[in-house]
Simulated assay, not measured.
Amino acid sequence: MNRRPLLLSTFAALAFAAGPARAQGLPELPAAKPVPVVQVLPLPDDQTSFTVGGREVARYWFAPRQERPFVYPIIGASGRSLTRMGHPRDPVGHGHHNSFWVAHQSVDGENYWEDPGAPRIVPRKILRYDDGDAEAAITSDNDWVGADGRVHMTDRRRMTVRPMKDGEWLLTLDLQFRAPDTPVNPGGSVVLGDTAFGPVAVRMAKTIGVADGGGRLRNSEGNEDEQGPNGCFRKPARWVDYSGPIVEGVAEGITLLDHPANPSHPSPFHVRRDGWMGAALTFGGARTIEPGKPLLLRYALYVHRGVPTPQTIDAVWTEFAKGRVEPLPAK
């Protein structure tokens, strides 16, 4: 079994990115503070960049003109993005496949999944940015605005980037869905309908897909590929992994992890051979969110080298599963 170390210690993280100035100190600046290894940097045009040792690994897009916020690119150790914008053969019909995104096909009966449409997920506020040697995070609030112009649901999300060994890294997504402060429905609740689409999904790079690039699609239960009795399609699992070629002779990939505290765990995963995978929270049954009782969820992306063994991914999932799922503070 491959038991390579999982998360970098603070010391290892420093060594990962330390330059001569950090190693030797800055005698001319006696009050100089350490420069965080992992940073989240606000950019123009409603973008935020995650960097590790000065190298960008991901970027969050949250312009109000968009249908919803998303993360693109998600960069592996090769320096290439492991995700893409849109379906490789249907860019219009699947224009909503924005790399890594949060959405749902049925919120109070309205579709927040496809583009274009009147229902939209509108960024309201960036609450905070946090840098550090071990990780960096952004926390934001968003409104799910229906065709009637009213807010049907809100979400608070925190995305955290934590570097790992050999250029690998983990993106953890904490989600907090809440019923709106101004009730839309009788009783003030909001209903997430029965669907296989939502709340999180990943559109992989074309070359990583099974159909286009000859990649591999596997899950924690030993299933492989999409359809058939041994396929991964809509099967419950702790994780689903997509691995494939990204540079000539080099394979990388992403594992989508489902936290054991999620109410649907082990979640059914909606997957396709064309390079798409998503965790289906309400596949098989609707879920009602009552006022004052937010729905707390946690997912993660393990951005890795090569085609890791199931034992390696299990070890990452076990470490991820130790994290507690708690309400996200406003400050």
Results as ranks from 00 to 15, higher is better:
Met1Cys: 00
Leu6Ala: 11
Leu6Arg: 08
Leu7Gly: 06
Leu8Lys: 11
Leu8Asp: 01
Ala13Trp: 01
Phe16Met: 13
Ala18Leu: 09
Pro20Gln: 10
Pro20Thr: 08
Arg22Leu: 12
Glu28Phe: 13
Pro30Ile: 02
Pro30Thr: 03
Pro30Glu: 03
Lys33Trp: 06
Val35Phe: 07
Val35Gln: 13
Val38Asn: 03
Gln47Pro: 01
Val52Asp: 03
Gly53Asp: 00
Gly53Phe: 08
Gly53Lys: 04
Glu56Thr: 10
Val57Thr: 02
Arg59Val: 01
Ala63Glu: 10
Arg65Pro: 04
Gln66Ser: 13
Phe70Val: 02
Val71Ile: 13
Ile75Glu: 07
Ile75His: 05
Gly76Pro: 03
Ala77Tyr: 11
Ser78Pro: 03
Thr83His: 06
Met85Gly: 01
His87Arg: 05
Pro91Ser: 12
Pro91Asp: 07
His97Met: 09
His97Gln: 08
Ala103Gln: 09
Asp108Lys: 00
Glu110Ser: 04
Glu110His: 05
Asn111Thr: 05
Trp113Asn: 12
Glu114Lys: 15
Pro119Asn: 00
Arg120Ile: 02
Ile121Gly: 01
Ile121Lys: 02
Val122Ala: 01
Ile126Lys: 00
Arg128Tyr: 01
Arg128Met: 01
Tyr129Gly: 01
Tyr129His: 10
Tyr129Arg: 06
Asp131His: 15
Ile138Pro: 01
Thr139Asp: 00
Gly146Ala: 03
Ala147Lys: 11
Asp148Glu: 02
Gly149Glu: 04
Gly149Cys: 06
Met153Ala: 10
Asp155Met: 02
Arg156Pro: 10
Arg157Trp: 12
Arg162Leu: 12
Lys165His: 14
Asp166Cys: 12
Gly167Thr: 05
Trp169Tyr: 10
Asp174Val: 11
Asp174Ser: 06
Phe177Ser: 09
Pro180Gln: 04
Thr182Ala: 15
Thr182Lys: 14
Pro186Asn: 15
Val190Asn: 05
Leu192Arg: 14
Gly193Tyr: 11
Gly193Met: 11
Ala196Lys: 15
Phe197Cys: 07
Ile208Leu: 13
Gly209Met: 02
Gly209Ser: 15
Val210Arg: 13
Asp212Leu: 13
Asp212Phe: 15
Gly215Lys: 14
Gly215Gln: 06
Leu217Asn: 00
Arg218Asp: 15
Asn219Lys: 04
Asn219Ile: 05
Asn219Phe: 07
Ser220Ala: 11
Ser220Met: 02
Asn223Val: 06
Cys232Ser: 03
Arg234Met: 14
Val240Gln: 06
Ile246Ser: 02
Val247Asp: 14
Val250Phe: 10
Glu252Val: 07
Gly253Ser: 04
Thr255Lys: 12
Leu257Gly: 06
Pro263Trp: 12
His265Lys: 01
His265Leu: 05
Pro266Asn: 07
Pro266Gln: 14
Phe269His: 05
Val271Arg: 08
Val271Leu: 07
Ala280Arg: 02
Leu281Lys: 09
Thr282Glu: 06
Ala286Thr: 05
Arg287Leu: 15
Thr288His: 08
Lys293Tyr: 08
Leu297Tyr: 07
Tyr299Pro: 11
Leu301Ser: 04
Tyr302His: 15
His304Gln: 02
Val307Asp: 09
Val316Leu: 12
Val316Phe: 10
Thr318Tyr: 09
Glu319Pro: 00
Phe320Asn: 02
Lys322Ala: 11
Gly323Trp: 10
Gly323Thr: 07
Glu326Pro: 04
Pro327Thr: 00
Pro327Trp: 00
Pro329Leu: 09
